[in-house]
Amino acid sequence: MKDETMTRPVLRIENLCKSFGTTPVVTDVSFDVHPSEVIVIIGSSGTGKSTLLQCLNLLHLPTSGKIFLEDQEITAPGVNQDRVRRQMGMVFQEFNLFNHLTVLGNVTVGMTRVLGMPVKDAEKKAMNELERVGMADHRHKYPAQLSGGQKQRVGIARALGMSPKVMLFDEPTSALDPELTGEVLAVMQKLAAEGMTMIIVSHEMGFAREAADRVIFMENGRIEEQGPPDRMFTRPESERTRKFLSIITTGKAEPPSGSLGQDTL
């Protein structure tokens, strides 16, 4: 783990709560994200991980609590949310590529329409990002002509094109056939090695173990435990973490203790 006292956090989350109607989904979550840090959030489904992630770039507005992007409080009233979102890349479980645009168009549309870049420059940058994810050869194809893994790599390139300060991954491999997850995880690992700040909601424990600087285990909308992966995976302090990890690693379900919360997304 990197030395937290030396660097200013890219993202600081303070007492974040989110409820839908009267159902609390995320409860009192606080943590800092430092430059180049890779955080993997794990936990059973329906424990508010995706909601938390979508709160970070304001796709869901937090019910209470504060989020700071560098020094700016983005949850303050009057903040331009669109401006906030262009500084954070998001990769979706279902890819959500723009169906009417080619691979190249998907990556450039944000640069030209949101950042106002000239088309030439945008295409040049887009080609760089597509090289990074190994999709440059497919630049003229439409999303419907790509495999799931290819779509997700384009999704990553689209987010990278906006030169984000932090990348958010919402279960990026969950919608993929097992044999296609490898190519996406490899791209993510490469990004991590290049120093990208990343927050990843994932069920890929192998990836978490290898690439994460910190693992956060969430349950019932709260952070149950967090720490560096070697400690989290070998000597978890919390009983619940231990239980969850044993289910995940042995594939054997123990009877759930208490309620698991409900699936909201």
Binding site: D82, R85, F92, E94, N96, G110, V114
Partner: peptide, 11 residues
């Protein structure tokens, strides 16, 4: 989801 993705890149 298309709108969601559009909002996510800052549109």
């Amino acid at each position: 989801d298309q709108m969601k993705a559009a909002r996510a890149i800052g549109m």
